[in-house]
Design a protein around this nucleic acid. Structure first.
Lengths: 194, 194
DNA sequence: CTCTTTGAGATACAGTCGTATTCTAAAGCG
DNA sequence: CGCTTTAGAATACGACTGTATCTCAAAGAG
């Protein structure tokens, strides 16, 4: 077995380049060749790690999902509930360059998934994970009633806000106040003692 | 001036075919040739009405926006407030084949707009119109406080729910209950007298 | 009628697409 | 050392892309 290399790391390298490309130029600028160039590889090399473009996209979609889940897991959930929830949501919103890139990719994949079952399955799994995490945290924070319904509403709200922020960056600030207003409404009064 | 034809009607005919194509096969199946085929025209004929593909996409995006606004304008807003608001939102959700097609196209254009300024401008205008309509109605229904913030939250929520319904149709019913729960939370108690 | 302008289709072109195949060089194993 | 397997680049292929150009039939204006 000569000249062996960490295949998974190479795949992540290429997948990361693909995500960057999606966020910077859009999903329809993604081709085997452009991804290879963005990854500093030859098109032939990319083919060694992904037999088809669809396989490459699926891998990148999973990678993007992992990024979101990791980022959410890194939030300090011992903060005051309302503040923690806001922090959790902000991890999915395009508030800085890195998050903007991730949000762009997520939404591009989501729309793409409407016509590609394999991507749809990945998206559903990511949604499910995020929903569980949010619901679990909501219950722990004392908002047990309708926790999953609130979690799903929060997810939908976040996606909608993120989507609009992408093509209307001028409204960024305003949309953050919309988020706060909606969260105030969505969460029943905190369990006393601010 | 021989052999004249209603150019605007032809453009709408082609634009409608484009929207159908987007909803059925996705935005990246849209090409001058596939649109021509879907419209029952030759590629050359399509070129007579749209000098470039981008122009064709922009026209279709405006057309889709008009569809949504027309549909919302058709809602009987004299219904009980909560019911009317629900009806307004349902016009943007993929609850039947026709609305599913429109929602699919809207979201595809929205994501596309993240990298195409011309489409972004169209989307922002549609959002603005919908926001104004919603806010005006909210005020008339006695929810004057934070009317535009609520309107924007409702828009984001709708977009997020619609997006998810597209790749997770299994969750359709559940997401409608999420919508109801969120609306209950978003609207302050109705101005007495149910 | 003829002339002229238009709609509409056909064709041409250079470029890109996804993918299959072929090549070169390098590195671990015996 | 040589052998063999691999990484990676290069190339080839047919299909499709957006757009420019050409041809031809049809229809109003004179």
């Amino acid at each position: 077995m000569p000249r062996t290399v960490d295949r998974e790391e190479q795949r992540r390298h290429i997948g990361t380049a693909l995500l960057r490309l999606v966020s910077e130029r859009g999903l329809d600028e993604v081709s085997v060749r452009t991804v290879a160039a963005a990854a500093g590889r030859s098109p032939g090399a990319v083919q060694k790690y992904f037999r088809t473009k669809e396989e490459m996209l699926a891998f990148a979609a999973e990678l993007a999902g992992e990024h979101v889940e990791r980022r959410m897991a890194g939030v300090d959930t011992s903060l005051p509930p309302r503040r923690a929830l806001r922090a959790l949501i902000l991890t999915t919103l395009p508030v800085d360059a890195e998050r903007r890139a991730e949000a762009t990719a997520q939404l591009a994949f989501a729309v793409h998934a409407a016509h590609h079952p394999r991507l749809a399955a990945i998206r559903r799994q990511v949604d499910e994970d995020v929903r569980q995490a949010l619901a679990a945290w909501l219950e722990a924070a004392g908002h047990g009633a309708h926790a999953t319904a609130v979690a799903d509403a929060v997810i939908a709200l976040s996606d909608g806000l993120a989507l609009r922020m992408l093509y209307a960056p001028q409204e960024h600030e305003h949309l953050l106040t919309v988020l706060d207003h909606a969260l105030d409404a969505l969460l029943p009064a905190p369990p006393a003692m601010g």
